Amino acid sequence: MSFEIIVPATSANLGPGFDSIGIAVSRYLKVKVEASTASWQVEHQLGKDVPTDERNLIVKTALQIAPAIQPHHLIVDSEIPLARGLGSSSSAIIAGIELADHLAELNLSQLEKLQLATKIEGHPDNVAPAILGDLTVSTYTADQQVFSIKGHFPEMALMAFVPPTELLTTASRSVLPAKLNFSTAVKASSIGNTLVAALFAGDLKQAGQLMEQDQFHEQYRAHLVPHLAKLRTLGHQAGAIATYLSGAGPTTMTVIDLKSCQRFADLVAASGLSGELLQLKVERQGVVIR
Rank of each mutant, 00 (worst) to 15 (best):
E4W: 02
I6K: 15
N13L: 10
F18S: 08
D19V: 04
S20F: 02
A24P: 06
V25N: 05
K30L: 06
V33K: 07
S36A: 12
T37L: 08
T37G: 04
Q41K: 12
Q45L: 13
L46G: 03
G47H: 03
G47Y: 10
D49C: 10
V50T: 13
V50P: 10
T52G: 13
E54A: 13
L57E: 12
T61V: 06
A62R: 02
I69T: 06
I69E: 05
L74F: 01
I75M: 10
I75G: 00
S78V: 05
P81V: 09
S89K: 08
G96Q: 06
G96I: 08
E98V: 09
L103R: 00
L106K: 01
N107W: 00
L108M: 12
Q110K: 15
A117T: 02
T118L: 00
I120S: 03
P124W: 02
D125H: 05
N126K: 08
N126Y: 07
V127N: 04
V127F: 07
L135P: 01
Q144M: 09
Q145S: 13
I149T: 14
E155K: 15
L158M: 08
P163H: 01
P164Y: 09
P164A: 07
T165Y: 14
L167R: 02
L168A: 13
T169I: 03
S174E: 11
P177Y: 01
A178Q: 15
S189Q: 05
G192D: 05
F200C: 14
D203K: 15
D203S: 13
Q209N: 14
M211V: 05
Q215Y: 11
F216K: 00
E218V: 07
A222Q: 13
H223C: 02
L228K: 01
A229Y: 04
K230L: 01
A238W: 00
G239V: 11
Y244K: 00
L245F: 06
L245Q: 08
S246A: 14
A248C: 08
T251H: 03
T252M: 08
I256K: 11
I256C: 09
A269N: 12
G272D: 01
S274C: 05
S274D: 14
G275I: 03
L278R: 15
L278T: 13
V287A: 09
